[in-house]
């Protein structure tokens, strides 16, 4: 391990993270939160089912529940893990010394991001045994499982980059956190609300669900929403519904990928640019 020098900042971040008791506590609470809900779900199901058996449709339900829950937890944790990575070094007065080394700004920003992402991945990996339930009873394909995990990774990178950007731009960690949480709440909750609202508008215009007035704005709200994008991979009908109302045929998951790829690239680019003072201008 000692010879395995990946990158100084990454190496240091890993060391600090896994020496901190908080990190383990975090994993524990994460699994507890997921586990309790799963057990509760199974318990309620078995009450309503006279044979106490678990059917494949219910297994799919549980997979969806688990996955949406996991998404919610990830969206909840990511800003907290990333919105302090630079500003906290600034507050502890370690940033200046790091910036006077010959490490590139790119390497510092990416290491910070990768470090935070790695911890989130660890949480996801740790949660995998909970899914074994689902596979035990069938109803879910491994492809669906892999899609979901890939979706998590992508979403973590996107929201993590935004957190890193705020942490770079905003001097105080607390302000950066509030900003990052605010934006995440808007992107995860606000856009869902907007989508529903705008779609309702479409229905109301026509009065007839089969003959709706097109509301393209609903599409732009929906394409930014991670919950809709993920749910769409389970239940394509809701995507069809959005296509129906908005009149935009372009696949929603592709719009999600494209918009967040642009956001991620922009956030990383500006973080790198703003980490050190702009010297060339003078």
């Amino acid at each position: 391990m000692k010879n395995f020098v990946i990158n100084p900042v990454l190496n240091k971040e890993f060391k600090l993270r896994f020496r901190s008791f908080k990190s383990y506590l975090g994993i524990l609470f994460y699994l507890l939160a997921l586990g309790i809900i799963i057990i509760g779900f199974v318990f309620i199901q078995s009450l309503s089912n006279s044979f106490g058996l678990f059917k494949p449709e219910e297994s799919k339900m549980m997979f969806m529940l688990l996955s949406m829950l996991q998404l919610a937890l990830i969206l909840f944790i990511t800003p907290g893990l990333t919105a302090g990575v630079i500003s906290s070094e600034r507050e502890r007065q370690t940033l200046n010394m790091m910036l006077t080394t010959t490490q590139s700004s790119t390497s510092i920003i990416l290491s910070k991001l990768v470090s935070a992402i790695s911890y989130l991945l660890l949480l996801i990996v740790a949660s995998l045994p909970l899914y074994s339930f689902v596979f035990l009873y069938g109803g879910i394909s491994p492809a669906q499982m892999l899609t979901t995990i890939a979706f998590y990774v992508f979403t973590i990178i996107a929201f993590g980059s935004l957190g890193v950007l705020f942490s770079t731009l905003i001097r105080k960690t607390i302000v950066s956190m509030v900003t990052a949480y605010g934006l995440t709440m808007f992107l995860a909750g606000g856009t869902a609300f907007l989508t529903l609202l705008l779609m309702q508008l479409g229905y109301n215009y026509s009065g007839n669900p089969s003959n709706v007035q097109h509301v393209p704005f609903a599409y732009f709200a929906a394409m930014l929403n991670p919950a809709i994008a993920l749910f769409g991979t389970f239940e394509p009908e809701i995507i069809d519904e959005i296509t129906n109302v908005t009149g935009i045929e372009f696949p929603l998951w592709a719009a999600y990928l494209i918009s967040y790829t642009v956001i991620t690239a922009g956030a990383i680019f500006f973080s790198i640019k703003k980490l050190r003072p702009n010297m060339k201008k003078g």
């Binding site: 240091k12 502890r92 370690t94 200046n96 010394m97 006077t100």
Partner: peptide, 17 residues
């Protein structure tokens, strides 16, 4: 940066190193 060693007036350390 290669030429200089800089010590700030106020600096912090990482507590788990």
């Amino acid at each position: 940066r290669k030429q200089i060693g800089y010590m700030p007036d106020f600096f912090g350390v990482y507590d788990q190193l």
